[in-house]
C-alpha cells in the first residue's frame, strides 16, 4: 500500500532531472524528500501522481502502476502541488465543497479526517481563498487534498513560504494524519523538518544521496563537529576557511560548524590560530551533527 520506486529516470531536453532513483515508502510511513530547489523533487512527485511519464524505470503507488493504472491512482491519492493551486475567486467552503464533489464525496462524510485542520479555517469559510494568509492557504489546500480520504498523500513543499509557527502546526497535523493510516510523502527544502519524518531521502541534482531515519543519518556523520563562535562572524568564517586543516566550514545560526581534516584534532590549536587572526570571545564546543551537516557533507 505504500510507494515503490525503481530505477526512475527523467530528463527535460538537456537537463537530467532524475537519475536512476529507487526507494520504497512503507505503508503508513511519513517519508521526507529533502533537497534544495531544482533537486528533482517536484518531477518525482509529478511522476508518482501520474502527471508525467518516467523516461525509464517503474513505480507503483498504493499497489498501482503509475503508467498503466493511472486512473486508479488518481482516485486514491491526494496531491498538494508546490504552488497554491486552489480557486482564488472561490470561498474557503466553496473550494472544499468543489473538491469533495469531484471526488464523489461530501464534506460531512469525511469531516472527521479534516476536522483538526478545518476548524482552524472554518471561521473564515466565507472568505475568498485568494485573500487568506499563507498558513491558512496551506491548511485549506491540505483539507482539499484530504477530503476524499486518500490512501497516499503527496505534499510538494507544503511549508515553503509559511511562517515558523504555522510550519510547526502543519507538521503536527501530518503526524496526526499518519496515525489515521495515511501514507505520506512530503518534500521540503528545510533540513530542520527532516527530523520530524520517519525516514528521509536526501536528494540533489536528481540523485539520491542517502536514505535512512533522521537519527541514523545524523549518527553516520563521519567526523566530530564543532560549534565555533567569535566576536566577528565574517572574519571568523574567512579565517576558518583559510585554516590549512579545515575539512568543512558552514555558518549555522549564531555558530559556525567546523570539522577538521585530521583525526587527532585539538580545539586548543584552533583557538590559538584564531587568536592570531585578532578574534576574541572565542568559543569552541563539540556538538551533534544535524541533517544539514550530513547533507552538506554528502553533497560535497
Amino acid at each position: 500500500m505504500g510507494i515503490s520506486i525503481s530505477n526512475i529516470s527523467k530528463s527535460y531536453k538537456n537537463v537530467k532531472a532524475l537519475q536512476d532513483i529507487s526507494f520504497d515508502v512503507k505503508p503508513n510511513e511519513l517519508f521526507g524528500l529533502i533537497g534544495p530547489d531544482g533537486a528533482g523533487k517536484t518531477t518525482l512527485f509529478r511522476i508518482l501522481t501520474t502527471l508525467l511519464f518516467p523516461d525509464e524505470g517503474t513505480a507503483t503507488v498504493a499497489g498501482f502502476n503509475v503508467v498503466g493504472d493511472y486512473k486508479e491512482i488518481r482516485k486514491n491519492v491526494g496531491y498538494m502541488p508546490g504552488k497554491f493551486s486552489l480557486y482564488q475567486d472561490l470561498t474557503v467552503e466553496e473550494n472544499l465543497n468543489f473538491f469533495a464533489t469531484i471526488f464523489g464525496t461530501t464534506i460531512d462524510e469525511n469531516y472527521d479526517l479534516i476536522k483538526d485542520i478545518y476548524v482552524q479555517i472554518e471561521p473564515f469559510k466565507d472568505r475568498r481563498a485568494g485573500k487568506l494568509s499563507g498558513g491558512m492557504k496551506q491548511k485549506l489546500a491540505l483539507s482539499c487534498a484530504l477530503i476524499h480520504k486518500p490512501k497516499v498523500l503527496f505534499l510538494d513543499e507544503p511549508t515553503t513560504g509559511v511562517d515558523p509557527v504555522s510550519r510547526k502546526e502543519f507538521w503536527e497535523m501530518l503526524k496526526r494524519l499518519q496515525q489515521k493510516g495515511i501514507t505520506i510523502l512530503v518534500s521540503t527544502p528545510y533540513m530542520d523538518e527532516a527530523a520530524l519524518c520517519d525516514r528521509v531521502a536526501l536528494i540533489q541534482d536528481g540523485k539520491i544521496l542517502e536514505i535512512d531515519t533522521p537519527e541514523a543519518i545524523v549518527k553516520h556523520y563521519p567526523k566530530p563537529i564543532y560549534n565555533v563562535r567569535a566576536n566577528n562572524m565574517y572574519q571568523l568564517i574567512i579565517s576558518l576557511k583559510d585554516y590549512e586543516f579545515n575539512h568543512s566550514v558552514y555558518p549555522f545560526g549564531e555558530f559556525v560548524h567546523y570539522t577538521d581534516s585530521r583525526t587527532d584534532f585539538n580545539p586548543k590549536e584552533l583557538r590559538h590560530y584564531l587568536e592570531t587572526k585578532n578574534l576574541s570571545d572565542i568559543e569552541i564546543q563539540e556538538t551533534e551533527a544535524t541533517i544539514e551537516d550530513t547533507f552538506m557533507e554528502l553533497a560535497k
Binding site: T49, L51, K75, P81, F84, S85, L86, Y87
Partner: peptide, 11 residues
C-alpha cells in the same frame, strides 16, 4: 494557476 494539475489528479 496550477489548478489543472489537481483536476488531472482527480477521478
Amino acid at each position: 494557476l496550477g489548478t489543472m494539475e489537481i483536476l488531472l489528479v482527480s477521478p
